[in-house]
């Protein structure tokens, strides 16, 4: 596997981590109820969406530049 493929795998795991942290923050917010956890959940989910968009753009750009064949 090349660095391009490994980078996409890495972005997938990073996205899963961001989603996991978001769910963790929601869970803590429901049990403790501090606003900081709600903020953490929103930031985490936004980061997850950002990583997904980045991953798609990265794949398309590598393909366009013929660095992914």
């Amino acid at each position: 596997m090349s660095i391009k493929g490994f980078h996409i795998v890495f972005i997938v795991f990073s996205t899963l981590l961001a989603l996991g942290i978001g769910c963790y923050c929601v869970w803590i917010d429901l049990t403790v109820g501090e606003p900081v956890y709600r903020t953490g959940a929103i930031v985490s989910f936004v980061c997850a969406v950002g990583l997904i968009i980045y991953g798609v753009l990265f794949y398309r750009k590598m393909k366009r530049l013929r660095l992914i064949t």
Partner: peptide, 20 residues
């Protein structure tokens, strides 16, 4: 870069396991 990605991937597992 492959090595660096692996090191970062390890941290992706370390962080939730130890911190959360």
């Amino acid at each position: 870069g492959l090595f660096w990605h692996f090191v970062d991937l390890v941290w992706i597992f370390v962080f939730p396991l130890f911190y959360l």
